[in-house]
Each structure stands twice: as C-alpha cells, then as structure tokens.
Amino acid sequence: MIEMKELRKAYTTGKVEFEALKGIDLSIKHSEMVAVVGPSGSGKSTLMNIIGCLDVPTSGEYRLEDDPVNEMTSNQLADIRNKKIGFVFQAFNLLPYATAYENIEVPLLFARVSGKKRRERVNELLARVGLADKAGNKPTEMSGGEMQRTAIARSLANDPDLILADEPTGNLDSKSGGEIVKIFHELWSAGKTVIIITHDMNIAEQAQRIIRLKDGLVEGNGNLA
C-alpha cells in the first residue's frame, strides 16, 4: 500500500535549513497495523504528514497504492485526502464553531454525498464511536475523549482504506485513551490499514509492527518478537 524510497524532508527557518527526514525507506502493506515510535523531534509527525498527503517531501519517492504521489495535482491530492485517507490529529483539529454532527459531515460534503445518505452515514458513525447523544455538541461542550472520537468518526466518513493517527491519545487521560485505541484495533480487525504514532509502549505493542525513528532515520523496523 505504501512504498517510500530515500525520502527526505528539509525545513527552512530563516536561513537555517534543517533536515527532519534524512532518507526514509519504508514499505507498509494492506491491512497492516503499524506503530511509529521514537523520541520527540525524531520526525514522526513529518513522516506521517507526508504519508497523509498533508505535506510534500523535499526529495525521494512516495507511492500510494502504486501511484506516484509526487506527480499528482493538488486536486488529485485533495481527493485522496478526502476518500482514501483518514487522518486523526493529536490536537483534534475540529471546526470550533461546528457541532459533532456537522464536523463529521464535512468530508461527506466535499465528496458531494447526497442529503439522505449523508444523514444516514453521519448517524451511523456517531453511533459507532458512541456519540449518538452528543450529535449537537460543539467541541467546547465535549471532553477530550469525545472530541477525539468525533475526529475519528470524521476520518472514517468516506470509508478510507488508510487510517493515520498522530499521537491520538497524547492529550487524553488513560481511560479515554484506551477507548480510542480500542476503536483503532476494531478498524484494523475490519481490514483497514492503520498507522499510529505513539509514545505509549502499551499501545505500540498492540500493533503488528513497530517502526522506530531516530534523528530522521528508521532505526528499527520489524515484527514484534
């Protein structure tokens, strides 16, 4: 599903150039569940943003389902983000003025899903993450766990094959975090490809494979013993 070769990403702040990814080779298959771990600043988020087509690499190759992402137009990338990838952020990134229902609806609106189907889908997703009774709540009226469940429901809106989560439990207490991890597990069981960045080894150990990043390079990459 994902193939990366010699992938590099450099950030330029003022005159200083900093290479956050220094040549990543990576391969992730369909229906895998992968945990990405590594110290802070090792380039985990940078890598995840590139996988999720939220950012572009400075050099190197990235193929998503055998299509070269480097060669895609911005509209093609938008459509991929809309339909093929579900992204869950540490900071939730919900629209602050919209209700849970409306937030989940957004990707469906971009996909031009018709009114009735949209309603069914949003309600189905709300039920799936256990928020049927919070449909009308705005982010300010929800707990962290509820916000993250809303974000997960939103990431699943157009039934993507690939779910990416960047420290999804980083802002949550362990109980809410546990519920979130459970949902990702279920998704994987249902056949989705799931990639989670985490600091929590308990969570990482639930994955099939752990990718260890250090200083912008893959340090360890293999099945858990």
């Binding site: 999720g52 939220l54 911005s74 509209n75 938008a78 459509d79 991929i80 983000r81 809309n82 339909k83 992204f87 990134n93 919900l94 629209l95 957004v106 990707p107 971009f110 996909a111 939103r154 157009n158």
Partner: peptide, 13 residues
Amino acid sequence: KEIGIKMALGARK
C-alpha cells in the same frame, strides 16, 4: 486554521 482543516479533509483549492 479552518482552511487547513478543510484541505486536510479533502477540500479542493
């Protein structure tokens, strides 16, 4: 930020 979120969710430019 709103634009960033919408683009992340698949809005075209």
